[in-house]
């Protein structure tokens, strides 16, 4: 054996544990779920092949699915732009030498590592319609006719969105901070010497050089927003009515409450299709605005 092949074998050997885990628990499960999506199966009685029926029913007839799809898109539109913009603003503030920088950095990142369950409990109090902090605040600055948040189908999704922004903005912030620190200060100095003001150097240096990070943040945020689940699971049970029911919660209910494994798999694959399409489009159009050095 030459050194090269020996090293190759060794490399494969080292990769094996991780790779085996991936094959069995990720790739295997994904492949099986694709297969399942053409079946009707409750785990106990023999599975029945139904062809495309699951997909046809989902797309053409299932009103609840249409509703949860709409809710999920509302959630994505409600959270992603805010998380990206706020994340960038926080990052810009926190890379500077502001007073108590460490404290603010921790404060913004802390929600990310708090379990959703704990956060949800606190938000349940904050958003209590009668005695919660949120409405108390709104009342004190002169609002009457306060929203009933989680108890009102019209407002429940907004409350979930606010919670999710608070919870996850720290993640975008950290990514942006890393991106900002990667921009060489010599560029700013050169621009300053050429007489560029702060706004100009932000637009012509920071934004273009940060664009790979921005692209990454947007892609990651869109993917994770489409997969929103725990807020609905812990906080609202998808309610009131179906106001905060989301696609992944619908998959969970189908699979583990009603034991319709085939149908749940079909929903999962449809969600995969949606996320794949959204990501594909972004990669297609990144050439127009993402600048790689």
């Amino acid at each position: 054996m030459t050194l090269k092949t020996r090293e190759g074998v060794a490399a494969w050997f080292f990769l094996l544990p991780g790779f085996a885990g991936f094959l069995i628990f990720v790739f295997g499960a994904v492949a099986v779920s694709f297969f399942l999506s053409f079946l009707q199966w409750d785990m106990l009685t023999p599975a029945k092949f139904v062809g495309l029926e699951n997909y046809v029913r989902l797309i053409a007839y299932d009103k609840t699915f249409h509703l949860v799809l709409k809710n999920t898109i509302t959630f994505v539109l409600g959270t992603v732009p805010t998380r990206v913009i706020l994340g960038l603003l926080f990052a810009l503030a926190l890379v500077r030498n502001i007073p108590a920088r460490t404290f603010f950095r921790a404060a913004i990142f802390l929600p990310v590592i708090i379990p959703t369950v704990a956060a949800a409990m606190v938000f349940r109090w904050i958003f209590n319609a009668d005695f919660g902090l949120m409405n108390e605040f709104l009342y004190s600055i002169g609002f009457s006719n306060l929203p009933r948040w989680f108890s009102d189908p019209k407002w429940a999704m907004s409350a979930v969105i606010i919670l999710s922004i608070w919870k996850d903005v720290g993640f975008s912030t950290v990514l942006f901070m890393a991106g900002l620190q990667g921009i060489p200060s010599s560029l700013y100095e050169a621009a300053w010497l050429d007489g560029a003001n702060k706004w100009k150097s932000f637009v012509y240096i920071t934004l273009p050089l940060l664009s790979p990070t921005t692209f990454f943040v947007i892609v990651i945020n869109i993917i994770s927003s489409f997969q929103v689940f725990d807020q609905a699971y812990v906080l609202t049970g998808g309610g009131p009515g179906n106001a905060t029911n989301t696609i992944v919660y619908y998959i969970y209910n189908n699979a583990f409450q009603w034991f319709r494994m085939g149908y749940a798999s079909a929903v999962a694959w449809l969600l995969f299709g949606i996320i794949f399409a959204a990501t594909f489009v972004q990669f297609r159009y990144q050439k127009k605005w993402v600048y790689y050095e």
Partner: peptide, 9 residues
């Protein structure tokens, strides 16, 4: 209380 609100209370 609204039955939908009970969980919050």
């Amino acid at each position: 209380p609204s039955i939908a609100e009970l969980a919050q209370l």
